[in-house]
Nucleic acid binder design. Structure first.
Lengths: 219, 219
DNA sequence: AAAATATTTGACCATTTGGTCAAGTTAAAT
DNA sequence: ATTTAACTTGACCAAATGGTCAAATATTTT
């Protein structure tokens, strides 16, 4: 009986098969998100993921079969959170409120789930080989509806004419995700210290104000 | 004599040793920049780089010894271009001109050297393991002087108070580099077509105008 | 012309890696 | 209690990969 791993021992108190699967899948997904964020799909090894999850490598394959499949699952699990934040954009009629909440939600996501943002960043930088269809279907649709909202605001003269509405959206995405994707650079330029919660809260308000002014709204 | 590669044959007309080295180093650097941009350091193979450069793999090692060394050389060669663009920021007294030229220069770089931007993005996303000291020395210094410029403009009431000047810099970096790093996403949301030169020129102006308004300046 | 130096390239090797498998263990169903 | 199904895990393997090396070729120097 002395030949069980540490992880196995801590799980000895019998759990149902269902919860075992659920828990292990979550543990592996979290570990994979972290590793993929740091090294990308090809640069990550199943062994690194296994070590991070504190499980034997075979266990990773048992639950997710292949590395590529695990990678896709990670991307999809992140997309769920992103889509929730995205919804906020179309739930407000007034541009000031819509921008305030959407930018705020994106900043919060960068703070709470930086690894997820990095995995997507890596995926898109390398040409989105695995997520092409999701980008050109789901995302495209959402963006089209946002573009309509923005154009309507311009027509109603609620915001200034920004030209192509996409430019504004890209600025919001890029600026908010910067705090997740480039968090290391942000840290170095913050004298080597990670942003505290209150510092981040300040940045969040500053970003919101920059975006509001960029479309001609007073914060 | 029939056993020369295509590349070797095209180079048969005798060139000096010096130009051979210079030319091959440039060819390899360009190929490496492209491959590293797509797959990151660990995900790229020396074979891929060799194929892209249309040279045998041994040739890559002959000129750059190791993959890691080649990677560092690529990063440094990109930094040269970036620093040139960076200089423009401090050569103007008026914020309107400084921002206009700097944002314009960054946008141009995203257009002309997207692979370089991607390599750096990958490097920083994965925690800048190879470029830590450059970030915390060269970049830090440049950023500090930019922050001073911005703060002076605020004191002179030439721009609105943006809070922490870093927030503005990050917005400029993120927004301009987005067009390089996420060019694939931009393409998909542009109905699957790459931006034409004139479309890009439009985006550039729109980005400049967004940034100018974000600090309270009229374009 | 010949010796010295630099470049080119295929063959080769040790290590790493994604994935498989079979033998064991634990929980669920009968 | 026993069978069945799900989970666990170390050992193993074929393919890929970074890097070496020596032999061949090309240029420069003497």
């Amino acid at each position: 009986m002395g030949n069980l791993t540490v992880a196995a021992k801590s799980r000895q108190s019998s759990r149902s098969k269902e919860t075992i699967r659920e828990e292990n899948e979550l543990i592996i997904l979290a570990a994979a998100e972290k590793v993929f964020a740091m090294h990308g799909l090809k640069g990550s090894t199943t062994m690194q993921i296994a070590d991070t999850a504190k499980l034997p490598k075979s266990n990773i394959h048992y639950y997710f079969h292949t590395k590529l499949n695990l990678y896709r699952c990670v991307l999809e699990s992140i997309l769920v959170d992103w889509m929730k934040a995205a919804d906020t954009f179309n739930t407000f009629d007034e541009p000031r409120e819509a921008i305030r909440y959407y930018v705020g939600a994106k900043m919060d996501l960068s703070r709470t789930r930086p690894f997820g943002s990095k995995v997507w960043a890596n995926e898109i930088i390398s040409g989105a080989p695995e997520m092409e269809e999701i980008l050109s279907s789901k995302l495209k649709k959402w963006v089209d509806s946002c573009v309509k909202s923005i154009n309507r605001w311009v027509e109603l003269e609620k915001i200034v004419n920004v030209g192509d509405a996409h430019t504004l959206l890209y600025m919001i995405w890029a600026t908010t995700q910067h705090y997740a994707d480039f968090d290391y650079q942000v840290m170095i330029l913050n004298n080597g210290k990670k942003l505290t919660d209150s510092e981040f809260e300040e940045k969040k308000q500053q970003v919101i104000n920059l975006v509001l002014r960029s479309v001609g709204l007073k914060p």
